[in-house]
Amino acid sequence: MRNVAWRWGGGSVAILVAIIVFIVPFAFIVFTAGKTQAEASFLEFTWPTEWVFFDNIVTVLENRDFLLIRAFVNSTILTVAAVSIMVVLGAMVGYVLQRRKSRWNPLVNGLVLAGLIIPPAVVPTIWVLQGLGLFKTLVGLIAVHVAFGLSFCILLFRAFVATIPRELDEAAIIDGAGPVKLFFRVIFPLLKSVIVTVIVVQAVTVFNDFAFALYFLPGDENATVQLTTFNYRAQSVSAFNLLFADVLLITIPPLIMYIVFQRQIVAGMTSGAVKG
């Protein structure tokens, strides 16, 4: 019948198209990363005649005095630090914003929206960072990521806190919990599921960031992973095998995140930025 034809026919055609449009480009990365430099320069979508995949990976990792490994360390510190700060501070704001109706709320809500929409003023930000002595430091870059990531976190936390019954707060207050204890001991643990969502989405965002690192943390000695690709593009002899080995390596962490946390990512990406 028609439904069966649709189910199998439509599905099969779609799978075929999806493989060509989305999977083949990624297979191209893997194949090219496995080729010798000479073979890779043909830019062909072919199975490598000689697999030198691991040699290429090792070369990329060792290149320029282990630059990529240092970059991975930097990116890891950056991601962990920025996301942790964002989560705690964002949850504090989202919680009070939802629970307490104060005259500050419209202002805070407006600022949160502005943070989502308005593009960063880059050179003045550099000026501020320089004034604080944080320009070209990892700490400075972490702070910038926190400032720009907070809005998204606050929106998610505010929406989730609304689902936690107030009776819980009241019970804790009656038991003598002060505001700090109430939040960190009672509310924060209850936010677990949305915290996972925020962590995963923001970790991918921070890890994949390119523009902020380019502006606020230029230079090789503390490069983040996204900037390492420039080493292979600037070279006169284009080593596509190494370039793609590098691309593959920096692509893997977000993909692992996706495979493990698919549900949370989907939830965060569809719900988070929806409502103003």
Binding site: V96, L111, V128, L150, I173, L182
Partner: peptide
């Protein structure tokens, strides 16, 4: 209140220093 407004402050510091001030300063610069 059990929902202290000072909970806004830590996040506000990041936001004001690295977003609000540069944005406002950009109009001058």
């Amino acid at each position: 209140s059990s929902y202290p407004t000072w909970f806004f402050i830590p996040a506000g510091v990041f936001y004001v220093v690295l977003f609000l001030i540069p944005t406002i300063a950009s109009f001058y610069f």
